[in-house]
């Protein structure tokens, strides 16, 4: 029988704040046409957060974050806290991301596991229907 251990994860708020800031910088950079040099630092930061931040503390890997912009939103998505803009609440997609989803990744029995430590804060809106 497959079993999984329920774990309690407590990530210091400062780490989450750090990740949120990196995410915001990344968002801003993606809108500027720059020669990739800042992108590189962001990637390095991301790499450090994902692989080095909690290294050595017994089996943990690190934090990773995901930007759900453009993805579908429905009432089953408990990984996002959403506000709905517009008149309709059908067929929603995520149009604004204020905070990303942050996962705590860890290895368990050689399986890569992820636990959500911060839900994304988003605004969703009904998809524009082009006729």
């Amino acid at each position: 029988m497959q079993e999984f251990r329920k774990i309690t994860v407590k990530v210091p708020q400062q780490c989450l704040d750090l990740v949120n800031q990196v995410f915001e910088i990344e968002k801003k950079i993606s809108q500027i046409n720059e020669e990739h040099s800042i992108h590189r630092n962001i990637n390095k930061l991301r790499d450090l957060i994902e692989n080095e931040l909690f290294k050595g503390t017994g089996g943990t890997i690190g934090l990773s974050y995901h930007n759900p912009i453009g993805e579908n939103y429905s009432d089953t998505r408990t990984d996002c806290e959403a506000s709905i803009a517009g008149t309709s609440s059908d067929n929603l997609e995520i149009v604004e991301v204020i905070k990303p989803i942050i996962f705590y990744t860890y290895l368990e029995d050689e399986k890569m596991m992820k636990a959500i430590v911060q839900k994304a804060i988003v605004v969703a809106k009904s998809k524009e229907v082009t006729l």
Binding site: T76, R77, T78, D79, I101, F103, E108, K111, M113, I116
Partner: peptide
């Protein structure tokens, strides 16, 4: 529900069949 807290089907009436599309977190178990 997904163990990491990211998906909740909601409370649904049980009948003789269940069919759900479960969303997956990439590169994870």
């Amino acid at each position: 529900v997904r163990q990491d807290g990211g998906y909740d089907s909601g409370l649904k009436k049980l009948t003789e069949r269940i069919n759900e599309d479960l969303p997956l977190v990439e590169n994870a178990y």
